[in-house]
Amino acid sequence: MKQLSIMVDMDRCIGCKTCVVACRNHHNLVNHRSHMPGEIPFYIKVESQAEGTFPHLKEDFWVSPCKHCKTAPCATACESGAIRKDAQTGIVLIDQDKCTGAKKCIEKCPYDVIQFNAEKNYAHKCNMCYDRVIHGQEPVCVEICLTDALSFGEKEILKMQAQAKGKEIIKKMSSQSIIYVKSAP
């Protein structure tokens, strides 16, 4: 299997949203002149969960881009064959030219990460910065993460790195290409 992945270190993510804005800038998702809050597309989002009662509290932060699923429900749902899982990288890509704007993928994505450009009538989402990674660069979010919480590479190698650092893989959160890790409590 060929699969490029992003590993999210939950010991480090602080939920600062820097990656959200950097990703938007790089992928030209924001019209700086006219976009208003609440209407700007995004490929990655921050989630968090707090537990406990004062003063015994815990909180985790993490990011959630497209998971580049193994058998991607979005690809299966798309009737015009616009979505494919790239054999070389394992990245799930939407071909804008083939996209008819049917929005079937959006209905079927379990992670709600697909954006829709109503003006130009196409679906779009995180492509793991395909344009960068095929030329040897990391995805933008990985490069600029404020706390170096993200790492990028082959899934099996990332898993080994996590193990070497004594971090556990959070199985219930991790998926095909996005791996969540944390130190054992």
């Binding site: 949203k17 976009h35 809050p37 700007i40 995004f42």
Partner: peptide, 18 residues
């Protein structure tokens, strides 16, 4: 707009109480 966007910023200042 990005700093007031709910996904990339903060869009309210509620009153926090225990």
């Amino acid at each position: 707009a990005q700093l007031r966007d709910p996904v990339s910023g903060l869009d309210s200042n509620p009153i926090m109480i225990n």
